[in-house]
Measured scan of single mutants.
Amino acid sequence: MEVRTIKVFTTVDNINLHTQVVDMSMTYGQQFGPTYLDGADVTKIKPHNSHEGKTFYVLPNDDTLRVEAFEYYHTTDPSFLGRYMSALNHTKKWKYPQVNGLTSIKWADNNCYLATALLTLQQIELKFNPPALQDAYYRARAGEAANFCALILAYCNKTVGELGDVRETMSYLFQHANLDSCKRVLNVVCKTCGQQQTTLKGVEAVMYMGTLSYEQFKKGVQIPCTCGKQATKYLVQQESPFVMMSAPPAQYELKHGTFTCASEYTGNYQCGHYKHITSKETLYCIDGALLTKSSEYKGPITDVFYKENSYTTTIK
């Protein structure tokens, strides 16, 4: 009895394709271990004539594949690729409408935090270190965002349907971005203890939790000093293409032309909904596939993004 075979390709990165001759009487799992086709788990399936010449994702289970996976995804987590594939199996079914010149995501599976993050990423200057993220990001900007969303979920250790947080998501993504040249110098002034300067680099240099107003941050924000008295913390120097200011959701007025974009969060910790506000020729609110415009805006804002380049204080 002759062994019926077909020729397929296996890959971990969709760049390096490895030619395989597979036995049609055995499952993919018996031949390769966990195997995925377009995100779908085909591990328990036997090869079919229609699979001839198709590319299958496999887990990096030998040295060659491990090197290829690390170079593309910059992670050695053995569960990463499987999590990416199972997320992709959902995100490829989502709709990605162009809204006001940006790629958004039609609401499904509690994905409003991903839509808000995706919209924000198209408006701030950011370059990702893992080629996987950078490639998928370019495709997302062009309207094909399924891979990018699935990668975000995998890097953030999230599953489809789980509630997510924009600030946490951005923080994970910033860790995989090139923020080497970003720098922030802060000064804390206390009447009792004097003053202390701190220099922050990388992710810490672009994120701040405690106030939404970048102007206020430049002037000074009140913080408790270690001595128990009130101290003032203010920005001395900022070198970065953008800054992200966050605070627990509270009524906040966004003035046209003073910011790049913002995240609105309605609801409580267990259950809520994100919308995205962007400042173009007027203010726009993007909620999944829905767009509304207004000249002014007041609502429960939790993150505001500002364009920056270089700032030095005039406070002496």
Rank of each mutant, 00 (worst) to 15 (best):
E253K: 13
A136P: 02
L173S: 00
I277P: 01
L37G: 08
S86I: 13
C156Y: 04
L118D: 04
A136G: 09
T19F: 08
S86T: 11
F148E: 00
S181I: 07
Q238S: 01
Y234K: 10
K293E: 15
V67R: 13
D41Y: 07
C156G: 06
S295P: 11
L65G: 10
E264R: 02
M24V: 13
L153R: 02
K255P: 07
Q195K: 14
K293G: 09
A262M: 00
Q122M: 05
E308R: 06
Q222L: 12
K183H: 07
L283F: 14
T312H: 14
C225V: 01
I152L: 09
F148V: 04
E264Q: 08
A87S: 08
G53S: 13
G164H: 00
C285K: 09
T266P: 00
Y252I: 15
H18E: 09
H74D: 04
M170W: 03
F9R: 10
Y138N: 15
L235H: 02
K191G: 13
L212P: 04
K7L: 12
M244N: 00
V99L: 14
N89K: 15
G29T: 03
L153S: 02
K280S: 14
M24D: 15
Y284A: 14
T282M: 11
A69G: 06
L200R: 07
K233Y: 06
Q20R: 11
G39C: 15
Y297E: 03
I301G: 00
K127H: 11
I315S: 15
T302R: 00
T313D: 13
Q175V: 06
L200V: 12
Y274V: 01
T199M: 12
G143P: 03
G220A: 06
T55M: 09
A145V: 05
I315A: 15
T313F: 14
N147D: 14
M245Y: 01
K44L: 12
N268V: 07
L81V: 14
V99A: 09
P130S: 06
A247I: 03
A115P: 02
S240P: 03
Y57L: 10
N61C: 09
A262P: 00
R83T: 06
V21I: 11
N100R: 09
V243H: 01
A132K: 03
K44Q: 10
M85H: 06
N178E: 15
R4N: 15
R83A: 09
M207T: 09
S240I: 01
G210D: 01
V166Q: 04
E71V: 05
L290H: 12
F9I: 09
Y28D: 05
L81I: 08
V185A: 01
